[in-house]
Design a protein around this nucleic acid. Structure first.
Length: 509
RNA sequence: GGUCCCGUCGUCUAGUGGUCUAGGACACAGCCCUUUCAAGGCUGCGGCACGGGUUCGAACCCCGUCGGGACCGCCA
């Protein structure tokens, strides 16, 4: 007798089970058994063994780790999503496991293919790659929920046939069993126990309310689809935001109703804005792309995101992707929500920025220089690289570096912001002999310039500052720059003469 | 209203009963370097939310209080 027959949205032939597809053993992937710790060793607690009330089946712990990131394509990849994706990726790579990407596009109103592509691009920008997903395929597809509708219907049908679910008002509801205690040992948060009966009522705890599995449009609800998909994709470690802790009991109930092995859960601390509220549009740049456009580097963003809720352990927080993969431990993830601190982000980015080989930096800056109306292609790449080395450490983002280095590429950039009006004619007159002498120095070297400046200053009662600052302004158009003599040496005798001449700081010819 | 989670310098964190007069990083202040600003080095400022208990001993274990957060949808 198939009860599902009376349900319009369910298919006539039920009995969907992923039993055969569930993880057997890790032997399929390279013979070696990955060694890893899942969770820090905890003292025995009254809650463990975790579940006596519920028949919790656990996945085979020696199996290869399979984790997933499952974004909804309803917007660009934001900080929170990037953080979750990053930790999943880190754990997969650390353990030699598989990182699966699944698109949760069951919100028909808001999901678009464009956003999906934007999210994938955002992940690629962060340097995250995945082993299975909508674009690369895999043995557990399809990887878009909108393409898995039959799976949800078939499984729901099975529950209806088994009397664990029922149809009403065109939807399928899961009968939340009474008198259950649901418990799991969260890899990050430790033992969590929930009275299952608290899940059986609506918001005001007045009327009983079961769990909708399939909406009347035939689409699955989130909590249901997640279970069908995670089980079907043989996900054995679910790493996601802490806001999902409250969803976990419902999902465990579904795993149990189906008789599917319950995965390990590892919830990640939330990321908050400076006001300690969940990060949102109000906090400014929230999409990962906004930081890219602000001049942040993928390595910087990666490093900073990794530092939210985790630390490498030693004193140095600046680390490469490789080091992070090596050092990462899920068991070392913290519980407390982390505030997203822009200043620290900028600092971490700066560290990565100036570790980038100058030749690579040149290529990163080329488009930014062009956007500022400069023409880097006119110069030798090696010369530009040396200019950046000269800038050494100044600037926290590529955008800032492009700005701070403009006077190397164009004198127009200098004249546009500095008109020399702060130089009284008298000052000009007294300085002219000095600059004239500078240009005639037998050797065009930093040491020679400095010695000359010192000597000239002593003879004419001028401080080094009085000589150097006007030169800095004339050469760079700024009051801040690398050492002026270094800049002068680098720009060359002729160019320095030209800039001095423009500001009438040389004797009339 | 209910359920759950969290609580170490302003921020990110180390810390799992004695090695903690609590360590590091960002920020801030000062010094060194120096023609400026960075970078770098050094120094300083600053914290175990509170109250009980357990213990010879508690940031760490237990209880309570307070504070913050998440979730309770035919959104994900």
């Amino acid at each position: 007798m198939l009860l599902s027959r009376g349900c319009g949205i369910l298919p006539p032939s039920p009995f969907a089970d992923f039993g055969q597809r569930l993880p057997r053993n890790s032997s399929t992937i390279s013979g070696k058994k990955p060694i890893y710790r899942l969770g820090r060793p905890r003292k025995s607690s009254p809650l463990s063994p975790v579940s006596t009330n519920t028949a919790t089946r656990r996945v085979n712990m020696t199996a290869q780790v399979r984790v997933r990131f499952a974004p909804s394509p309803t917007g660009a990849l934001h900080i929170g999503g990037g953080h979750t994706a990053l930790f999943n990726w880190l754990w997969a790579r650390h353990t030699g496991g598989r990182f699966i990407l699944r698109i949760e596009d069951t919100d028909r109103e808001r999901s678009t293919r464009e956003y999906e592509e934007t999210i994938l691009a955002g992940m690629r920008w962060l340097g995250l790659d995945w082993d299975e997903g909508p674009d690369v395929g895999g043995d557990f597809g399809p990887y878009r929920q909108s393409e898995r509708l039959e799976l949800y219907r078939a499984s729901a049908s099975r529950l209806v046939d088994e009397g664990k679910a029922y149809c009403q008002d065109g939807a399928v509801y899961f009968r939340i069993p009474a008198g259950k205690t649901i418990a799991w040992d969260d890899v990050v948060y430790g033992p969590i126990e929930v009275d299952g009966d608290t899940l059986r009522f609506d918001t005001q705890n007045t009327a009983p309310k079961d769990l909708v599995l399939l909406k009347s449009d035939g689409y699955p609800t989130y909590n249901y689809a997640v279970v069908v998909d995670d089980a079907g994709m043989a996900i054995n470690t679910v790493i996601r935001g802490e806001d999902h802790i409250a969803n976990t009991p419902k999902q465990i109930l579904l795993y149990e109703a189906f008789g599917w092995p319950v995965p390990r859960f590892a919830h990640l601390p939330m990321i908050l804005g400076a006001d300690k509220k969940k990060l949102s549009k109000r906090h400014g740049a929230t999409s990962i792309y906004e930081y890219r456009d602000l001049g942040y580097l993928p390595d910087g963003a990666f490093n900073f995101l990794a530092l939210l809720g985790w630390s490498p352990g030693d004193e140095n927080e600046i680390c490469s992707r490789r080091e992070a993969v090596e050092l990462f431990e899920l068991s070392r993830v913290t519980k407390r929500a982390a505030v997203f601190d822009m200043q620290k982000f900028a600092h971490v980015n700066q560290a990565h920025l100036w570790r980038t080989p100058p030749e690579e930096l040149v290529e990163l800056l080329r488009p930014l220089w062009k956007a500022r109306g400069l023409d880097p292609d006119r110069f030798d790449a090696a010369w530009l690289a040396r200019a950046l080395e000269l800038l050494g450490g100044r600037g926290q983002t590529t955008l800032e570096v492009a700005e701070y280095s403009d006077y190397f590429l164009s004198f127009d950039a200098v004249t546009a912001r500095y008109d020399g009006a702060d130089l009284p004619e008298e000052t000009r007159r007294s300085l002219r002999p000095f600059y004239a002498g500078l240009l005639e120095l037998p050797t065009w070297h930093h040491g020679a310039m400095e010695a000359y400046a010192k000597q000239w200053g002593e003879e004419h009662g001028a401080k080094m500052k009085d000589l150097a600052m006007p030169l800095r302004w004339v050469l760079t158009g700024r009051k801040v720059s690398p050492g002026v003599f270094d800049v002068a040496v680098f720009l060359g005798r002729e160019e320095v003469g030209r800039r001095l001449g423009h500001y009438r700081l040389l004797p009339e010819a």
